[in-house]
Design a protein around this nucleic acid. Structure first.
Lengths: 147, 147
DNA sequence: CTTCAATTCTTGAATATTCAATATTTTCAA
DNA sequence: TTGAAAATATTGAATATTCAAGAATTGAAG
């Protein structure tokens, strides 16, 4: 018996708002953990994507880590300064730049991964296995249906 | 048979990532609709909260619309310039400022509401009634369990 | 009372993000 | 093969957000 939101329904009933609120809260928690290593969430995502050892172009990365191109470029600049990642021009398409993770980046990524796993475990405890996997399933399908 | 994420699981399996991705996508769609009236999502949220006609303090508003205080102050400055809202000092506690929606703000809010309802209906169509209400339920309970 | 800490909001400087324009390389049609 | 259009990444200026500090008011303990 779920009612569709009327024009004057409170904002808290809108899907867009619930998503924003949940995202904000979970992100805040994750941020808090990762701050132990002084690393923003986006950098962890970048390291994680690159930790397959393959080279990834900036465009690919931008999509994967949900940042737009200029923002990513500037964040990568910082990470290059910190020698966490490095750039290589793609030999097959010289418009592209391939990003790789450094050894230092790999070491940091491992530490960050376990901080993140801590968080997921904490969520599993307070929220429950069943709800968590069901929520993940629904989110994936929402994302699918939006493309 | 849902597996908990291992240290080296892809980023796309993390709840934090799925939430960020879904939020980004739904927000992008909403933004697109509201841009017809040239209004950012946050301003719509503000108008919607204020449209109960009551006065709301800045702190209250900041919580409700998921913005931190200085960001809200500056956004409200713009909205005051556009005569969508106005400030009144709280007579009972002069530290506080009470925000009210103007007549112009009410008119705009109505238009925005129907654009937002359009979007929710679009989601219901492509994603389904059942999934939508189930997702909302799970999100609410995740938010609850995080406090 | 009076003073000191807490609350609320705003401000200004530092930082980050975005938009539009640019440079480079590739693609592909004529 | 050439030349125009598309794709990729970066830059710089404009804009927005955040952090830390400040001003005003209230609360409450001594």
């Amino acid at each position: 018996m779920a009612k569709p939101p009327k024009e004057n329904s409170p904002i808290t009933e809108h899907l867009a708002y619930l998503l924003a609120q949940a995202n904000r809260e979970i992100n805040r928690q994750l941020e808090l953990r990762l701050s132990k290593e002084g690393v923003p969430v986006e950098q962890w995502r970048i390291l994680k994507v690159l930790s397959d050892g393959e080279g990834h172009s900036m465009g690919e990365l931008a999509d994967a880590v949900l940042l737009n191109h200029p923002t990513l470029t500037k964040m990568i600049d910082r990470m290059v300064s910190d020698t966490l990642v490095y750039r290589v021009q793609d030999p097959n398409d010289r418009r592209k730049v391939l990003m790789f993770i450094s050894d230092r980046g790999k070491v940091l990524c491992k530490k960050l991964n376990s901080l993140a796993v801590d968080q997921e475990e904490h969520i599993l405890e307070s929220y429950g296995d069943k709800s968590t996997s069901e929520l993940k399933r629904l989110l994936e399908s929402l994302i699918d249906s939006s493309n």
